[in-house]
Design a protein around this nucleic acid. Structure first.
Lengths: 347, 347
DNA sequence: CTGAAAGCGCTAACAG
DNA sequence: CTGTTAGCGCTTTCAG
């Protein structure tokens, strides 16, 4: 019967091995590791050599236990397979790395239960700060964060009146911009294919923005012209196919994000609907690919890289004692490309 | 002057607080946490209540220090913003979660130095196992892994003769398949736009596979018909534009991955080159989107989800004492869709 | 500027 | 089945 336990073999060198070899105290080695300035060059040199000779690697858990700091920052993301979030995470890591912080990344699949579990698990592993997406989290999430006194940021949204620190843009405003643009082009029969609003405040705000802009011109978004689907190409294709059958008067469709817009565009290609001549389409996010497609997609630019960078900066500040983060407002501009035009003449 | 140190305020409850409140020993609480079966229901109940009352959260660093297990598995990925890798990582997490393991994800941007640093940083934080992509890593990576006795897997490749455990598919074989397919369609003027081979064995093997299949029919890939570019749409567009000018005889282009294939396709749309009538295009990876485009892309299916799952399973096994992992072979099948046809008649 | 020593919170023999 | 106890490797006062 083979042992079920991990065989670690000969033990790894520890800090006190280094101290012994360098003939200094463990405190000195510890100071060296922290790059404490107050060590005489002579000792510093001895420690440095001992570390190299032993191939010593500090033990993070022991350090975290003793110092009560994990040097880890988390990011709990709804969908890492959505390019826009991957980019933000990547950017965050770029800015955390040089500060000696590790990014702990997880993916919730838009599941609040999972989000809570992942936060728990991160806290257990040691967390100095965490990035969340959106404002809508289960009460337990906020309680845990408060109880453990962990700095956090709600990204992808901007809300100065919130009790929680936000870092992002006004999702409704972007939606208003894109809607007004279509309205100005002359569209009156506008449909929307949105992401699922339940548990997703960004999706809800985008819908809200569209409704508001429509209302400004005394228009509305009847149920007949509204579809709510998961963020997949396949779902968007089905939704548009259905819309195409049941509401042929539609001349423009606003999508909750670029994935959905791509789905609509692909379905148009299959159906022989020419974009933008027969139908105008808009996206939201401005992921890399959509600017290259034919037609290039008109969309709302979400500053994902900037969010990642600012998140890293802000969390690092908070971890170092700066008390409460101010909400950070970024802009989400309309990017006009080739997927929209004036409405076709009614037959 | 504000304190630079984090104010942790009142202390958090510890395991011994729980033990005191439940009137049991710390060992019992520890067993409860491990869900050790051998606890009487009565005690189990008391512990459970005490934990709830105190909102107790175990301290991972302390646990890791004492048990010498971090319950963390790493994945060091070259490009998380490439959908195929995001999918694999997601799948890995799905399978690690229920086992109580956390996935520590990082992104190297194809930089070997960064890979090494990230591995170091993970080891410091505590790592029970790690997934690497490809076989080509700096010597220090392998040394560190050996010294620290950390189980690892080289994924995305399959090589039974390697000294390192591999988990993946034969990149060259996929490339051969796609090349033969084009050859059988009648193409003789075949170009390739590949990813950068330096430091990327998968990219190199794909190029190799194409060359081999060409050689089987006494053909070759002259420098004139070969381009090596970063994995971006923009770079692929430029490369194809150039090819289109300098080698108009080309009737098919094989791309190193789907991103590149999309770039070529987009450039064709701009240039008025009709696919597949005027040009056949193939990709590699089979990311979600390419099956929906018009024309749908013929490509090689990379089983990213399966890699993620098998990686989780295998690493978990190794962590639990199963000694050396066998190489795991997966298949990378050709997926025929609409982006290829017979070569156009020579003008 | 450097060292001694007391923990950090939890686990794992070993007893009983 | 449960408790006692000695650490795990590092940081951090507190002296000197």
């Amino acid at each position: 019967m083979v042992s079920k336990r991990l065989q670690k073999g000969r033990k790894l060198p520890t800090l006190s091995d280094v101290a012994r070899r360098a003939e200094v105290s463990t405190a000195t080695v510890s100071r060296y590791l922290k790059s404490d300035d107050s060590i005489k060059p002579a000792l510093r040199e001895r420690v440095s050599r001992a570390i190299a000779e032993l191939d010593y690697v500090p033990h993070g858990a022991a350090r975290a236990l003793a110092s009560r700091r994990s040097h880890t920052i988390g990011a709990i993301i709804p969908a890492l397979d959505n390019h826009i979030f991957a980019v933000a995470a990547q950017s965050m890591q770029h800015h955390l790395d040089p500060a000696g912080y590790t990014l702990l990344l997880t993916n919730t699949d838009y599941d609040p239960e999972r989000e809570l579990n992942q936060l728990r698990s991160m806290i257990q592993r040691g967390l100095d700060g965490v990035l969340l997406i959106g404002q809508q989290h289960t009460a337990s999430v906020y309680e845990l964060l408060a109880q453990q006194r962990i700095p956090y940021l709600n990204a992808w949204v901007f809300d100065p009146r919130s009790d929680h620190p936000t870092l992002g843009f006004d999702n409704a405003e972007g939606a208003r911009r894109v809607t007004r643009y279509l309205l100005d082009l002359g569209h009156r029969h506008i449909a929307m294919i949105a992401g699922q609003q339940h548990g997703n405040d960004r999706a809800a705000q985008r819908v809200q923005g569209v409704r508001e802009a429509l209302a400004e011109r005394d228009l509305s978004l009847p149920a007949k012209l509204f579809r709510e689907v998961p963020y997949t190409i396949a779902a968007a294709r089905r939704a548009y196919f259905d819309l195409h059958q049941t509401a042929p008067e539609v001349t423009a469709v606003i999508c909750g994000n670029d994935i959905l817009a791509m789905g609509v565009l692909f379905e148009c290609q299959r159906l022989g609907v020419e974009v933008p001549r027969d139908l105008s389409i808009t996206g939201y996010d401005d992921i890399d690919i959509v600017g290259d497609m034919t037609p290039a997609l008109t969309t709302v630019h979400v500053p994902a890289r900037t969010i990642g960078r600012r998140a890293a900066e802000s969390l690092l500040q908070q971890v170092n004692g700066e008390p409460i983060a101010q909400p950070i407002r970024l802009d989400a501009d309309l990017v006009v490309r080739d997927s929209c035009g004036p409405p076709r003449k009614t037959a």
